[in-house]
């Protein structure tokens, strides 16, 4: 595996001047490509995507999943077992949608992991903090919930001066 170190002065983490503590993140020093490759294609990666598919019933970007999964594997020492437990609960309930089994996940580590996975997919970030790890911007699911009318900031919405149109209804949420 290729290993590299972020060069001084250019690391994204240094963009996050807001008191970002690097402690705990040293595992991820270096470009994404390097640290995700070890996780890519492993059984755990596949299991993580399976878990994600149960928790979020939308199209999930493979690349974003790789980033979130690789991070989760570092963050949760027992990721493997936890995934087994959550998947078992879903299977027990015969669930194909998150609503059918989420409440059955016991409070505590399992529930925390499950919700962290959901939050990571929707926000594209490891937390709401200024020093959070970013997994994806373009594929963060929050934007998908409103993409019929709201742009992902920094990506153009329409041709020049063509954006004024009737407001979209609040519901239903577009399929994504």
């Amino acid at each position: 595996m290729q290993t590299r170190h972020s060069s001084p002065g250019v690391s994204r983490r240094q963009l996050l001047i807001g008191g970002a503590s690097l402690l705990g993140y040293f595992t991820f020093a270096g470009p994404t490509f390097a640290w995700t490759q070890a996780f890519k294609g492993t059984p755990l990666h596949q299991r993580f995507m399976q878990l994600s598919g149960l928790l979020i019933n939308h199209h999930l970007d493979e690349g974003a999943g790789l980033r979130i999964g690789a991070f989760a594997a570092q963050k949760y020492a027992q990721l493997d077992q936890h995934i087994d437990s959550i998947v078992a609960i879903a299977e027990q309930q015969g669930a194909t949608e998150v609503e059918q089994f989420f409440d059955a996940i016991p409070e505590g580590e399992l529930r925390d992991l499950a919700y962290w996975v959901i939050a990571a997919w929707y926000s594209g970030s490891s937390s709401a903090d200024a020093d959070a790890e970013l997994f994806t911007y373009e594929h963060a699911l929050t934007f998908q919930t409103t993409l019929d009318i709201v742009p992902i900031p920094s990506f153009g919405l329409t041709g020049p001066n063509a954006w004024n149109r009737p407001p979209a209804p609040l519901l239903p949420v577009p399929r994504f």
Partner: peptide, 16 residues
Amino acid sequence: ELVNFRGDSYAEGLEG
């Protein structure tokens, strides 16, 4: 191919 650079710095992306 966003997976390979999003969240890194731009300079890292250019080297990657």
